[in-house]
Write a protein that binds this DNA or RNA. Structure first.
Lengths: 128, 128
DNA sequence: CCTGCATGTGAGAACCATTGTCAACAGGAG
DNA sequence: CTCCTGTTGACAATGGTTCTCACATGCAGG
């Protein structure tokens, strides 16, 4: 039996207010900051439970940190500047289709993907 | 100046004998087992150095462990199975072009990108 | 309303891959 | 050969994640 507790509701609520991927640590800090404190262990459990239920999507960063995101949010990618960290959200239906097709060709199902583009923006190039 | 040491040679040699992805810990254990012992820190450093030189390709498992493998130096992406970690290398000129174009539209230069596709392979689906 | 109790919580410890530290070591240029 | 400097490795430290266990709390079924 799965219970509806203050803590789980709070964790789920965080992802309602947020775009994109966020770590369990981040969620924990956010809850603590908003006075609606929840134990770190509980955040991890809640987040994993949500991911198991298919409510959250999870990936790993290059440093091995786990990130979660509400699945239903509009899918997009990031164009990040190496110099100033400025980020532009970009959508690419072509890429989505390509990824799905490639996965299908290899008989993979439940396909998701991560994509980030890095570059140097005009301002940072001008600044040298 | 980069030196050629017994340890680095040993680590590189491990990947000559092995197919697929392997963790630093695994390489360390293998070297220790073969009597050709190398310190754990050194294995990590060697493996990262090889990855930096483009001699090894690296990914992360779902559990956050880093895996390395000798790879073709050609640019490609990975299609990774969530269940068994099986990896397929895929090339996608369309994606490369798209990424470059999107970056150009936003006046970004020196463009690079990362892309990984996740899914569940046929075998893992059958296994439940 | 209660009460029982299985389930959930949370502070802290444990875990474990990875990274940092630093004294000792060893390529290799001269 | 010698010296300089990059490299090594035992060990400690780090940091995200998971485990532990005493305590709290949803939620039926009375």
């Amino acid at each position: 039996m799965v219970r509806t507790t203050r803590q789980r509701t709070a964790v789920a609520a965080v992802f309602d207010d947020l775009e994109g991927f966020h770590s369990a640590q981040e969620v924990h800090a956010k809850l603590r900051a908003s006075g609606d404190s929840v134990g770190l262990s509980t955040v991890y459990r809640a987040v994993q439970a949500l991911a198991d239920d298919g409510e959250l999507d999870s990936i790993r960063t290059d440093s091995g940190e786990a990130l979660y995101r509400r699945c239903s949010t509009q899918h997009h990618h990031h164009l990040v500047c190496r110099g100033c960290g400025r980020t532009v959200e970009v959508a690419g239906p072509a890429v989505e289709n390509w990824a799905d097709r490639v996965a299908a060709e290899h008989c993979f199902a439940d396909v998701s993907h991560t994509l980030e583009i890095f570059g140097t923006c005009a301002a940072c190039r001008a600044a040298g």
